[in-house]
Amino acid sequence: MVNNAISSDSNKISISSWLWDFLIFFIFVVLSGYSIHYAMKVPNVLLEQGLSHRIFYFHVPVAWVALYGPLFSFIASIFYLLTRNLKFDRMSFALNQVSLIFAIGVLFSGPIWAYSAWGVPWDWTDARLQSFFILCLSLFGYFIFRSLIPNPIKKAMIGAYLTILCGVNAVLTWGAIRWIDNPGNHPSSVLGKGGMETDMRIAFYLNVLAFHILFLVFIRIAYRLENIQNFRNIIKASMDDE
């Protein structure tokens, strides 16, 4: 009863146990509830930003996931180009879907924090903001171009190259505040500075862990839905041939 399997692409598509999904989601709910409560109540308020700095505990972990996702999708696309196995294309597609969700979360939370802290919701001189905006456009472009291609093989091939572009954009976005003399308001990297107090560091990494678990939950759901949709397409194609 743990797994059901259906055949597709001469392989087996495994529909994972609902128990694992429930367990992972339960861990996320408990951890995220505790981490959000901790972040709202325990760390001291930064005097120069006031209460608005607490969105940092949501904004930065979500941004990290939004940058990791395209890199994992990049790897899946490389495997597709090497093997021509469509399961890697489905995996890449699922990763890009979830990456876009988190990227939109960053675009919404970032201006709220920026406006509250600096009085400017969007700084066009900020290298990190512009590079992240380009990453979001790349992800949108990926889905638009895929929707315009009916042939699944061509769709997977074009999608793989577009995903590689998104992965490169993610690396450039990560390096925007490390490699470029940034005149904007965006703060420097939180890593390697030693500037966070202990309670701030605990709150931050609790939320990092929580949103990474949520990322895993979304990936499992998105990839399973892609496998099911692929199986439906195969059944439909076989019925049309009869």
Rank of each mutant, 00 (worst) to 15 (best):
S109R: 08
W124V: 07
Q130H: 00
I180D: 07
S99G: 14
I36F: 08
L165W: 12
R54Y: 04
A63W: 03
V2T: 11
F93E: 01
C136N: 09
A114M: 06
Y38P: 06
A127F: 15
A237P: 00
V171Q: 01
L206W: 07
I27S: 13
V60M: 10
E197H: 13
S8M: 15
I101H: 05
D241N: 15
A66I: 01
S77V: 03
L31G: 01
E242Q: 11
D9R: 13
P121E: 02
F26W: 12
A127Y: 11
D9F: 10
K155T: 02
Q130D: 07
W64D: 08
F218E: 03
F26E: 14
I202D: 09
D240T: 06
W113G: 09
R178P: 01
W64M: 11
V29W: 05
I75D: 03
I15K: 02
W174K: 14
F74Q: 08
F211R: 05
A176E: 04
S92K: 09
I180P: 02
V42R: 09
F108H: 00
F26M: 14
P61C: 10
I158A: 12
A114G: 12
L23F: 14
G33S: 13
Y223I: 05
R224A: 05
A222D: 04
K12R: 12
W20M: 10
L135N: 01
A63E: 12
E226Q: 13
D199G: 00
A170K: 02
M1K: 02
A114N: 03
Y115C: 10
F204P: 03
L216H: 00
D21Y: 15
H59G: 00
F22D: 07
D126Q: 07
Q49A: 11
R128Y: 06
P70K: 02
P43V: 01
F108G: 00
V30H: 04
S14E: 12
S52W: 14
S109L: 14
V29Q: 10
Y161R: 02
I55D: 06
V45C: 00
K12H: 12
L82C: 07
G175N: 12
N96D: 03
P121G: 05
A176P: 07
I36W: 06
I221F: 11
N169C: 13
W20K: 13
N230L: 13
L129T: 05
V30W: 12
D21Q: 14
F143V: 03
P187S: 04
L162A: 12
I149H: 02
P43M: 04
V171D: 03
L172D: 08
P43H: 09
P43I: 06
N96W: 06
F79M: 14
